[in-house]
Amino acid sequence: MNIYVCIKQVPDTETKIKLNSDQTWIDTSGIKWIVSPYDEFAIEEGLKVKAQFPESKVTIVSAGPDRVVDAIRTGLAMGADTGLHIELPETADHFITAQAISKALQKEEKVDLLFCGKEAIDDGAAQTAQLIAAAMDIPALTVILEAQYTENSVQVKREVEGGTIEVLESSLPAVIAAQKGLNEPRYASLPNIMKAKKKEVKKVSLADLGMSESDQKVKLKNFELPAPKAAGRKLDGTPAEMAAELVKILHEEVKVI
């Protein structure tokens, strides 16, 4: 099978976000970049499917500035075969990201399975997997906790609200967006990290795909940091007094209960 795993490089979760001077984006200086955590489940799933169908090839795809090659190398170190870097500006929207990935993959070997994380933890938009699927006209199965594969079909369990599970069947090719719990991502061993440095990472630009930044559909503007919160009120008294006062405030003043 030809397996593709689309991953995003995002700021480490500890990052303190600062804005650039004209508030058109964040200030990316000094940020430590990581592979978005849900994408690690996507990579692992690709490798698991390869173990099931040993003739398979796993390609790690990432769209973004040059720095994302490090994320691709992380996937290669986990055991993927090859990489594809689609050069995109930092500020690209999800629409052109998905269009670019879909167009780039048309030039590659036929897609059988494409894995993504269920969302990236930087913008939490949860769009790209479904956008790619729609652009390629194949099904998207998102927030997947369990999957069973045959040569040409997949059965999945999808997590929705309240812990309800939807059971779905789909033909392949399909896009699968991984939820935590789908598998346990492996750690890259030192020899594999060394080997990954020698694996091929192909580069494709927007222009190569006949696209430009102006194909974008939405733009983010007027970035703001959350307004600093006014100091809250610590209640005093015995626990019973504090509990009574809190319930009174929530009921009578704030009217939330």
Partner: peptide
């Protein structure tokens, strides 16, 4: 519409620049 980015560590307004 504004949406949170970086898990609510910032937010931004969404502007539509395409058709549809």
């Amino acid at each position: 519409a504004r949406r949170p980015v970086y898990a609510g560590k910032a937010s931004a307004e969404v502007e539509f620049v395409g058709n549809g």
